[in-house]
Amino acid sequence: MFQVPWSEYSVDLWEGLLKTLSYTAVGFVGAALLGLAVALMRLSPARPLRIPAVLYTEVFKNVPLLAVIFLTYFGLGSIGLKLDAFQAGTLSLVIFYAAYLSEIFRSAINGVHGGQQEAAEALGMRRISTFGKVVFPQALRLALPGTNTMLVDLLKSTSLLVTISAAELMSQGRLITSATFRALEVYLVIAAVYFVLCYPLSQGLLWFERRIQAGTPLSVGRRRRLRAAKALLDRKMSAQEMSTQEMSAQEITTPEVRA
């Protein structure tokens, strides 16, 4: 059954794989940044910001990705704005996925309890710190599951770029097929490569999600402050040698993991 000389195509496959990963990375980072900007615009009290954001989201949520790819590659090319396959491909992924991510981010930011903003305000925190240190970290936790799904979905959608010969995995598969005429074998292997990429990615993201939900401090600053607080508590405890608080001392040696 397996008659394709794979060793001859290993370089092509490898290059396709790297290309797929580049499309995914650039596309996702761009989409996340644009999506956050659009979400903030939609949450703004100013109508001139809100209306274009709503229009943007609604338009790109209701247009197929393939149409967006053709528009940016062939459409813009026809009016003199010639983009190469990588530019057109990443641009399509960014504008298409930003629409979905903006919806996820918007509902996550909305999902942070109003009392949180108020508590930060009452503590004299300014708007930017309130957003950055109170609202955003909580919204991030709420947005994580949806965002992770979108990342895996984006990776798989890079295969649509085969239509503009973007040199990613699927395009390489098509080239190998046209050289060997072994469509079943080639596309089985290509599908397997996608699976090998996506499955660990989604499992890894799930693990990351669970760690975040468990409250594991990820930022260097948080870890440092927690260490400093614990050192201070330990010192005071041992100085006082309070036998009654031995339990407490044990508890504070590691951050408690949430149930």
């Binding site: 009392g115 508590a119 004299g124 925190m125 970290p137 927690l226």
Partner: peptide
């Protein structure tokens, strides 16, 4: 300073970090 009926602690931070946040800011 203000203390609320429903506490309004920051759920993503530990107790000690809740107390640290505003002075640090």
């Amino acid at each position: 300073g203000m203390v609320f009926q429903r506490f309004n602690l920051f759920p993503h931070l530990t107790a000690v970090e809740n107390v640290i946040l505003a002075p640090l800011d």
